[in-house]
Structures are given as structure tokens and as C-alpha cells.
Design a protein around this nucleic acid. Structure first.
Lengths: 336, 336
DNA sequence: GCTCCATACTTTATCGATAAAGTAACATGA
DNA sequence: TCATGTTACTTTATCGATAAAGTATGGAGC
């Protein structure tokens, strides 16, 4: 009456039943007369009929939506280019396959976690997480309690309903550390937002591997978060107490850039006085000054893979393989 | 039976009807006996019941979802930090208000445009666009044909079903140009991905305003897109044919950084030899070397505003105000 | 003329949640 | 004692789309 026209409205306009219209729309084998078909198509066009997806879904018992959760405690939860590109890849995949992407930001203390999960369970079916580790643990537990199949980005979790999509953080971190050792660096500082993030601890472990073998020292500086401000504050304070290392190994490009800037402001040359490396390359890492030694993984591709595995997971009610590790490539540059 | 338990399953387990369970869940005034209530709550918990959102929506005749379309022709459609932050703001707003965000990337030539619109009409109700201008026009027409209320980001469009959310590009561009003129620059090159993007043409117009008044020259260089590669190629070719200007006015920070890097590689000092400015500040614009003279608007806030106006639009079936222009602030730096 | 079978539809029932109206059981007051 | 409420539910109908089963009409074949 007031809202959108329904199948019934179209049917009434044509003097047939809703079922006939439905058959036309779905190309059903129960042939509809060519005359009638034409009349119906015209009416659909005239009335501007659009199917009601809620009804379709209710009937079909499936959702045609993929949910993605981004867990984080800052309001700007999409600030990280890595996460952004995962979203982009997943969204693209979803669109191509007739799914829509339901994107939800979630704070750790949010009371809407449970309703959201319910939403995903019936509407979105799966969840992809990123964000801080504590929140993740809590969330994963709850999700599994509700039997929601999960895909985790950058974290391993052994459970039949969980599929992990990670990258070879350890290997790439090794490559970076070896590069630094080759250039004569011996004392390292690792800049981490928090040493407890799964991906970060892998990277630290990779650096440590190399240090152990080469007899180098590695100090981890926890900055609290990965903002420019927090990074610069932590680096400045560590310089004050422990002096300069030979190289700063940044947990990511953002932290590397913040550090380079700080050093340059203090008239220190990068890489001559101190070497600095990044990780999870910004797309412009090679265009920074100096260009960054960093590691690059294909976050966009990871988003697509998440979509692929998710559809499999939805279909099978679980996952074939539960852990994927994607390659990360070393990026040479001038900063180290 | 196989899938998720429904109200009926819970009801059966308790020896009551689905309606009673529904009443418990919705705190209906028709009081349910305290004994029964307890039994029902326990059963809900035991069975892991979760409401079916498709059914809820069908019944309630509303969608509880906001759709956001990002129109673009590149697969990495979320590469731009401005768009990303709009998404972040909108997503946050949606989450807070019990809506979910349906995010769709759409290519101009995509055959799924129309189904997607239908999806939004019944499921997402509204759309927010960004992306290339031609695609936008086409899309807007189609959306309006279907009576979908639209919020446009960074573009004006006079129609009762369209609400524009823009920023004061012209004013900010003027401020930047004036800053450059004050420092003695007279010959300008404007670096645009395409001069026909609505927001970009506003920025060019702002620069032109100042040039006209100050008797300066302004050449527009169209780079095709805003990638580092395209920008550097276009700038290099313009230097070849026309030589160096006093200043490059970047259409955005990305293009500014690409240009600075190119100039530095050619042993040109920024800002001593050539000045360079950006626009739509990256969050680290101030941490680049040299830090950027640019303009910053609150894209996150714009996303939130989009959410606010969208809900109003959904409720009223149209918009109270159809054009909002948000402020942009000048950011001083060392690049000019 | 009658059966058999396409053809071109229509009817009915269903997905899950819920508003609105109905009902049984018991209590209270005049 | 009987009308009148109140409590604690149950029944029915509905949202829109559609699978499955049903029906009317006309023609072919014997």
C-alpha cells in the first residue's frame, strides 16, 4: 500500500497470482505464457518492483551476507592500511559473489557484542576479526559458544569452527633482521604497539631468531599503540635511558616513519647513524624519504581468501583447512 | 530441526507457545508468570536460541541496515584514507544505533548495479557514494529512478531525494594558494587525478580565484589517477615540456608526496627550489619529511553525519536539508 | 466420444517473529 | 451469587517470496 510494491501488487495489476510473477522472475520451467510474461515484466517495470530480501532470505533460509567484525578500542578502527585492504578484498569478493558485506566495528567493552553475534549468526553467518588480543579472546569464546564459524585474521586458534588466515611474519622478520645484520648492525630495538599481539610476537620471535644466531642484542620497546605520537614518545624515552641502538625494527611502517622523523629532527641521519625498518608496507613505503626497508604482504588478497574460505565454511558448516599462512616479501629500501 | 533453534523450538521445550517466548524476549506488558519466564530463559540459553533477523525484518517492515556504496574503477577501492575514514565514521555510527553497515564496492561497468540497488532499497535503504564522476552520474540516475534516497559524499546534486555532504574545498584551496602567494610563488601547477571530479574542480576553482586576484598563472596537470606512479609520470613529463613552476598544488597528500619524492630524487630541495602542497591530509602528513602544507577535514565526522542524515532520510522519506558543507582547516608545514 | 497429457496457470503451506484478539481459570466486590 | 476483572497464557493472521501440489483448458490419439 504505502511502501514498496510487492509480488502481490504486481500480480494484481496483471490479473494473475503472485506465484506466476515469481515464476517469471525466477525463470521457472513451469512455463508462463509469452503474453502474460510480457504483461508481467511491464508491470514490474511500471511499479518499480524490487524483491524483498528479508522475505527471500527467510524463505530460502540463507543469508547472502558475510559479516566482518573489526574489533578495536579506538574509534578510528579502520585507520590501519592493512585492515583496510583486508576489508577491500573481502568486500570485492563478496560483491562479485552476490553477497553483501556487513561491516561492524566493535569495542571491547561494548554491550552490543552479543546482539551483533546473533546478527552474524543469522544474517552474516561468519566473522572476521582483527584488533587487540584481549578483545579477540573474549569474542572468540562467545562466538564459538554460539557455534558461529569464524575466520581469524592474523591469529591462530585451534578449533574446528575457526580458520586462521595469517602471514609469514616470522620468516619476513628474519629476512629483515638478516638484512640489518649483513649491514653491520648488532644492537636492535624492536618497536611494538604491544608485544602480546599474536602477529607482533611472531615478528619479534623472527628477529630474535636472527639475533641469537648472530650474537646480537634485541630490546623490545612497547609503545602502547601504533600512533605516531605514542611511538615517538616511547622512542624518545628509550634514547634517554639506553641511548641509540644500531637499528630500530618497526612493528609496522607507521611506527617506522614516526621513528625516522624523530631521528631526523634530532639531526641523526637514516640510515647512516641509525637504521630503521618497517613492516606491513604502506603502499607508498617506497616513496617515503628515505624509502623504507619493509615487508609487504597482500592484505587485499588476504581479504579475498577470507571470503573464499568463509563461503566454504558456510557451505560445509566448518572448514576444510584451518590454518593458512600467506607469503610476505622483503622490500628493499634506503632506510637501512 | 537442523539449523538454528527457533522460537517454536524453545516454546516446545517449555510446553508453551512461541508467542509466550516472544513476550518474554521482548519484555511485553502482557505479563508472563515468573516460573514460566525462568523456564523459558533457561531453555533459550540451553538451546542457544538467537532471533532470526530476516524474519524480524520481514515482520517489522524495516531493515536496520545502512548501505554504503563505494563506486570506483580500481579494485583497491578503499585505498584512499579519506574514503576509509568516512566508512569508519559511518560504521561506528551505525553500530551505535543498532544498524549494520552494508558495504559494497561497485565498478562502473558492473552488471550487479541494479540488483545491488534493489538490495539497498529493501535491505539497506540508502546509499552513500564516492568514486569517479561518470559512474556517479549513472548510478544516481538509476537510484533515483528506484526512489532510493541518497546521500552523496563530495558532490552536489539538486533533488529532494538527495542529500549532499561536502567540505569547503574551495575555501581551503584558497587558503593554500594564498599561503603560497604570500611566500612569493607566482607560477603554479595544479596536480589533479582528473579535473572533472566535483571536489577537485572546486579545489582548482579556489586556486584559480587566488591566482586571478594575485596575477599568477595556474596550469592544471591531469594525472589520470592519484597513484604515485601516475603522478610522478605526469609531473616528470610536464617538467620536460614546461619546466618547473614555483609550486605544485597537489590534489591530495598522496600526489604531493609522490611529487616531493620525485623532486628530491632530482636533487631539488622542497620547499627551497619548489614548493609542494597537499590536500585531505593523511593522518601522518605532519610526520612526512618535509611535513606537508595541506588541508584537513574530518572525514570520520563526515561519515557520522552521513549516518545521522541517512536515518533522518529513512524516517522522513526524504531530507530536511539537502546540502551540508563541512569545514576544512589549513595545516601548516615545511613543504611550502 | 473418451482418455491422456501438456500448458498455463492457481492454491496451499511454509520460513520465524509478533500484533491483535481470544480464552480459560481464578479472584474480588456488590 | 453473579457480573467484572485480572492473570497467564493461546490462537489467528500477517509480513513477502516460493516450493509443492492442485486445477482448468485445449488438443492429440485411438
Amino acid at each position: 500500500m504505502n511502501g514498496q510494491p510487492t509480488l502481490k501488487d504486481v500480480a494484481r495489476a496483471c490479473g494473475v497470482t503472485a506465484m506466476t510473477v515469481s515464476n517469471v522472475l525466477n525463470g521457472r520451467d513451469k512455463e508462463v505464457g509469452p503474453e502474460t510474461r510480457k504483461r508481467i515484466l511491464k508491470a514490474i517495470d511500471d511499479l518499480g518492483y524490487r524483491p524483498n530480501f528479508a522475505a527471500k532470505r527467510l524463505r530460502a533460509q540463507k543469508t547472502s551476507a558475510i559479516g566482518m567484525l573489526v574489533l578495536d578500542d579506538v574509534p578510528e578502527f579502520l585507520n590501519d592500511p592493512f585492515t583496510t585492504q583486508v576489508v577491500a578484498g573481502l568486500s570485492n569478493f563478496a560483491t562479485e559473489h552476490g553477497y553483501s558485506l556487513i561491516l561492524q566495528g566493535l569495542r571491547s567493552e561494548s554491550p552490543s557484542t552479543v546482539p551483533m553475534l546473533g546478527h552474524l549468526q543469522t544474517d552474516g553467518v561468519c566473522a572476521i576479526l582483527s584488533g587487540s588480543p584481549d578483545t579477540r579472546r573474549k569474542f572468540i569464546k562467545r562466538a564459538l559458544g554460539l557455534r558461529v564459524p569464524l575466520i581469524l585474521i592474523q591469529e591462530e586458534f585451534d578449533h574446528p569452527l575457526v580458520c586462521s588466515l595469517r602471514q609469514d611474519d616470522r620468516g619476513a622478520a628474519r629476512a629483515i633482521a638478516e638484512y640489518l645484520v649483513d649491514r653491520g648492525a648488532r644492537r636492535f630495538c624492536y618497536l611494538a604497539p604491544s608485544a602480546h599481539w599474536p602477529a607482533i610476537s611472531e615478528r619479534i620471535a623472527g628477529s630474535q631468531d636472527v639475533c641469537n644466531k648472530a650474537g646480537c642484542s634485541l630490546t623490545v620497546i612497547e609503545c602502547g599503540d601504533e600512533s605516531f605520537e605514542a611511538t615517538q614518545k616511547a622512542v624518545a624515552s628509550s634514547i634517554g635511558t639506553e641511548g641509540l641502538p644500531d637499528a630500530y625494527i618497526g612493528g609496522n611502517d607507521r611506527m617506522a616513519m614516526a621513528t625516522i622523523r624523530l631521528l631526523q629532527d634530532r639531526q641523526l641521519a637514516v640510515p647512516e647513524d641509525v637504521r630503521v625498518t618497517g613492516f606491513n608496507a604502506f603502499d607508498f613505503a617506497s616513496f617515503a624519504a628515505p624509502s623504507l626497508v619493509t615487508a609487504r604482504s597482500d592484505a587485499y588478497e588476504m581479504g579475498r581468501r577470507a571470503g573464499i574460505e568463509m563461503l566454504k565454511g558456510i557451505e560445509l558448516g566448518g572448514f576444510e583447512h584451518n590454518d593458512f599462512v600467506l607469503p610476505v616479501s622483503f622490500v628493499a629500501g634506503q632506510s637501512a
